[in-house]
Simulated scan of single mutants.
Amino acid sequence: MLSRLSRLSRPRVLAVCALPVASLLAVAALAPLPFTVAQPGQTTNVLGTDTGKPVITISGAPVRQTQGQLRMTTIVATGPSAEVDLGDVADAWVRRDRAVLPRDSVYPSGRSDEEIEEHNTAEMLKSQNSAVDAALGYLGKDPAKVKVTLHLADVGGPSAGLLFSLGIVDKLAGDGAGGDLTGGRNIAGTGTIGADGRVGAVGGVALKTQAAARDGATVFLVPRAECAVAAEQLPEGMTLIPVTELSDAVSSLRALQKGGDVPRC
């Protein structure tokens, strides 16, 4: 999930060298490279009103008062047309709060900045629709009787799907389908979701765990396929829980709340 795109700037120094080899190295250092530099982005509690209005609004069914937090996480990356040179890459390489990613792994190739922003917005809307379908399907609710509205500005991409679904389940689960999911904890995570509830992999999970820790989360839900990547730089004191489906995530959070055994990466 990408926050609104920004350019991570770095002071540039151009030295004039007399030696041809040094000149070539200087040119190479300033030449654009096909990479994107990313850093931890914002997190948003989908159960709350971080954006000035409720992230999740539900009508047509009883809604419970939730506790704790369910935080979707993002990364901030250099824009698709931003120039990233060797100095940017070297700087990011030695920092834990930066990552160098192939540009094509972050943005669709061959598109303008405007087209990419439209694509990311469309992916977010598609993710929201899938999240609603997955949550209502899990709870056995009739979509025709329950209106769910999701509001999250300045964020694009599909990787908040899992957290949207969990937020909907948490708000609707007070009518016999189970109680609070968080146990008052600050819980974060990432993952795409299909209408069938299957959780998919995303990018930048090591940066997202940093964002989650920065904003007080102690538990992080991660797509199972990305356990190893997330565990490489896991912030101290954070519990990393792998998930493959929405039902896994719900079961793990309920077990965690009751002090039972919880899968861990």
Rank of each mutant, 00 (worst) to 15 (best):
K145Y: 04
A211G: 11
A122P: 09
L136F: 15
L125I: 07
L172R: 08
A122M: 14
A201C: 14
G191F: 01
T121V: 14
L152K: 07
L152P: 08
T190E: 03
T192C: 12
A177C: 10
A144Q: 15
A131Q: 04
G174E: 07
D154Q: 10
A131R: 05
V169S: 00
T182V: 05
V202Y: 01
D142I: 00
G174K: 09
N129H: 15
K147F: 06
V132G: 08
V155K: 07
A144N: 15
R198M: 10
I193G: 00
G203M: 13
V169E: 02
I193D: 01
G174M: 10
S165N: 14
L181G: 01
V205E: 10
G189W: 08
S159G: 05
G200W: 06
L150E: 03
D113R: 11
G189A: 03
K141I: 11
A153D: 15
T149Y: 05
A135D: 04
T121Q: 13
K208S: 02
D196L: 09
K171L: 12
G194P: 03
I116E: 00
L150A: 01
E115K: 06
R185Y: 02
N129W: 12
S165A: 15
T182P: 02
N120T: 11
L150G: 02
E123G: 06
A177D: 14
A177W: 13
A160K: 04
D142P: 04
G176I: 00
L162H: 04
L136H: 11
Y138I: 05
M124Q: 13
H119C: 01
A201I: 13
N129T: 15
K171T: 04
G137H: 03
P108Q: 09
A211L: 08
Y138P: 00
K208W: 00
G204M: 09
V202W: 02
G200K: 05
V132W: 11
E123L: 14
S109W: 14
D196A: 09
S130D: 13
A122V: 11
D113K: 09
F164K: 09
G197F: 06
L125V: 12
A201P: 12
V132T: 13
L162D: 02
Y138T: 02
K147L: 09
S109F: 14
I193S: 00
I168E: 01
Q210P: 01
E115S: 08
H119E: 10
Y138C: 01
R185E: 06
A173S: 15
G203H: 11
A201S: 15
S105Q: 15
N129I: 09
A160G: 03
A211S: 13
L166T: 03
N120Q: 14
A195Y: 07
G197P: 08
L207H: 13
L172C: 10
S130P: 07
H119I: 06
D175V: 11
S127H: 06
E115M: 07
G204Q: 07
L163M: 12
L136W: 11
G183P: 02
K126P: 03
L207I: 12
G194N: 11
L139Q: 10
K141Y: 14
D154N: 08
E117H: 10
T209L: 01
